[in-house]
Amino acid sequence: MQVTEVVTTPVAIKYRPEYQADKRYYPKPAEQTNVIIEIRTDDGTVGIGEAAHAPGIYGETAGATIAGIEYLAPAIIGQDPRQITKINMAVDRLSPVGNIAAKAGLDIALHDLTGKILGVPVYQLLGGRVHESLKTHITPATYEGTADDLMDLVAQGYRAFKQKMSGDIGYDIPLVESLLDRVPDGIVLSLDVNQGWSVKDTLEVVTVLERRAVHPRNVILEQPIDGADIRGAARIRNATNIPIMLDDGIRTAADLRRILDAEAADIVSLKISRVGGIQRCLQMIKMAEAANVSYIVDEINEMRVANTAVAHLALASKAPLYTGVACHLLLENDIVTGGGVWIDKGEAYVNDRPGLGIDGLDLTAVAVPAADA
């Protein structure tokens, strides 16, 4: 069996209206543009993957990903798709650094394809299912209606939230206080700053939180400062008992090793789409576990194909605090017509069908010309 073709389709889907008023630190475009990848074999089996993009943080775009996949395709075509490690090694020889979104989408497609060939779900390729379901966070928009939106989601059963910050502590502190005044005990509220604060700002927020009598223990400080400032993160961690989660600066195993060596994080957020695929993310999960550092298996601007891959990895992992597989619910449309990850009362589930367990895609209304991606 051999790979005969790698096909890319850029898709663009608008965010729901409340996210158009979003005041987070880095700009959020009106629509999300990702790339659906199909890896086809000589016997007609097709594996699907998704390359997700966060241009405001990492700079990669759909157009760059398509060009990257065209460049990387010679490392894949003609290969046995079941040899995922061998193919990833060949891809890395062509592109040791960069093309992270492209690598992630290709790796997801290879896992889906191999699962279909062997007749097993992706989680089985990763050592088997550990959890029947996992708590997933969801992201309310950061705007004047945030508290009401978050409470609506609590009523739907969600118990973990990635709440984006604006980067202006004059706006952020009252927002956080208003949320903590309303959310019940037991809700996880990760304040995702996406590098928007300074060390001084973060310590000021910490002072406010530590003075609160109600639910400050529910809070996680997620990537409050520049992702490259590991020393600053360690300083913050040593100044407070509020857990520090690092995120945006983790793109390679070497990045994670530096954070672990510096004891700069209580929790690390590990993302398939940010580190170059399932296999690379699994390596980082094992590193965190070996260092006794907590972790979440997370998403970044993903549609339901990539969210499903995240769910398979999370459910096959030993002890994630929770996962993040709800990003596709922030969009107006869903490209998946059946199967894939689903969420019930804030818990993420996948089915037992081969590969990702996705029955079909409908890209007709959302596909865009490659020249416009």
Rank of each mutant, 00 (worst) to 15 (best):
G196F: 07
G196Y: 05
W197G: 04
V199Y: 01
K200T: 06
K200R: 08
D201T: 02
D201Q: 00
V205D: 03
V206Q: 01
V206P: 00
V208H: 09
L209D: 02
R211I: 00
R211L: 02
A213M: 05
A213R: 11
V214W: 05
V214L: 13
H215Y: 15
P216Y: 09
R217G: 11
V219H: 06
L221C: 04
L221D: 04
E222Q: 12
Q223M: 08
Q223D: 10
Q223V: 05
Q223N: 09
P224Y: 06
I225S: 07
D226Q: 12
D226G: 08
G227Y: 11
A228E: 14
A228M: 11
D229H: 10
D229S: 10
D229M: 10
D229T: 09
I230G: 11
R231N: 13
A233F: 14
R235L: 14
R237A: 13
N238V: 01
A239T: 08
T240E: 10
N241S: 13
I242S: 06
I242W: 02
P243E: 10
I244Q: 06
M245C: 13
M245S: 07
D248G: 13
I250E: 08
R251S: 12
A253W: 00
A254Q: 13
A254K: 07
R258M: 03
R258P: 00
I259W: 12
L260V: 03
D261L: 12
E263M: 03
A264Q: 06
A265V: 01
D266V: 03
D266L: 01
I267D: 05
I267N: 02
I267G: 02
V268S: 09
S269Q: 09
K271D: 12
I272W: 02
I272N: 11
I272A: 04
S273C: 13
R274K: 15
V275I: 14
V275M: 14
G277D: 11
I278N: 13
Q279P: 00
Q279D: 12
R280G: 07
C281G: 06
L282C: 00
Q283C: 04
M284R: 05
I285C: 07
K286F: 05
K286Y: 11
K286I: 01
E289F: 06
A290W: 00
A291Y: 12
V293T: 15
S294H: 14
S294M: 12
V297I: 15
D298E: 14
D298N: 14
D298W: 00
E299Y: 05
E299S: 15
M303F: 12
M303E: 12
R304A: 14
R304C: 08
V305P: 05
N307P: 01
N307L: 01
A309Y: 11
A309I: 10
V310Q: 08
A311M: 02
H312A: 08
H312N: 14
L313W: 08
A314K: 07
K318Q: 13
K318F: 04
A319W: 04
P320S: 11
Y322N: 06
Y322I: 04
G324N: 13
V325P: 03
A326Y: 09
A326S: 15
L329T: 15
E332H: 00
